[in-house]
Design a protein around this nucleic acid. Structure first.
Lengths: 143, 143
DNA sequence: CTTGCTCCTATAGTGGCTAGAGGATGTAGA
DNA sequence: TCTACATCCTCTAGCCACTATAGGAGCAAG
């Protein structure tokens, strides 16, 4: 008599680890499900969908608080999606900046690695560049 | 009579915040400097250089433990720089992967934002894509 | 001598989990 | 029915690299 999905199955279905699911419950991201007589959590399909939504959002780099907003938006389909759009746009801008930053970093690392004489540390470009910021072409904001 | 640099000056000179400098001392990344009679830390130029090295390495995304290795390498200039080179190469590979991942993410976010009808949540592509992983073209490793 | 800046220690908090201890429950086979 | 094993439970602590806060003490200029 089990019309409830066990946490392990939910974990398998969504790819979210069991402790993480419990953590999401703890921080109020996932509602606390009913329990069996033996005190085990029993989920339903909606929970699984919600978790999939959460996991996908996390994969896309959204923060927990952003996901909280997106979830409440999802729950009210008749409202304007302005907020969701704004969150996504802001996030997109951040991602673009991060890519730019990382690309600059990539070039600098390449310069380091290519310039390395493969000899002694004394003449190593890797160490040299790290020690002397002036040898740095690019200004990196965040890496 | 002050031939010792105060922590605040070191902070200004290197761009590393005061609590962070103390933290680095605590974890053994920066040696504990001598103190004045009034128990204040007094640094010298070498410390400033070491901190600059650390800051720059952090900006380039190296982890503390990697920096630890790089620092010991720097201290022995007659040794082979193989290790430093290996660390930089590994790091470069990670950065490249991250860029690829973020670029995929960027495309997906753009698809979301462009597809958004700016109407009600019901028809919002942002929410839709987040809810349904199947609508995702790219497989993202880490974002 | 007082004002205000810098510095000190120690502790706790951040985000987003992850790991471990120690125990209860559920299930499948002998 | 017994037993072995998988799965689940709670609770606490740890991870990284800081950052913030509280509650003081030291120091330099006006």
């Amino acid at each position: 008599m089990s019309h409830g999905i066990a946490i392990g199955r939910v974990s398998d279905a969504t790819g979210v680890k069991i402790p993480t699911i419990r953590y999401y419950e703890q921080i109020g991201l996932l509602p606390a499900p009913p329990r069996t007589e033996g005190n085990r959590r029993t989920y339903d399909l909606k929970d699984t969908e919600r978790l999939t939504f959460i996991r996908h959002s996390r994969e896309l780099g959204f923060e927990i608080d952003e996901i909280r907003t997106l979830l409440t938006l999802q729950d009210r389909p008749d409202q304007s999606c302005e907020d969701a759009d704004a969150i996504a746009r802001t996030h997109l801008a951040e991602v673009k900046e991060k890519i730019a930053s990382l690309t600059a970093l990539q070039h600098e690392l390449e310069r380091m690695v290519v310039g390395c004489s493969h000899g002694r540390v004394e003449t190593c470009r890797v160490i040299e560049i790290l020690a002397d910021h002036g040898k740095c072409k690019h200004h990196l904001h965040q890496a």
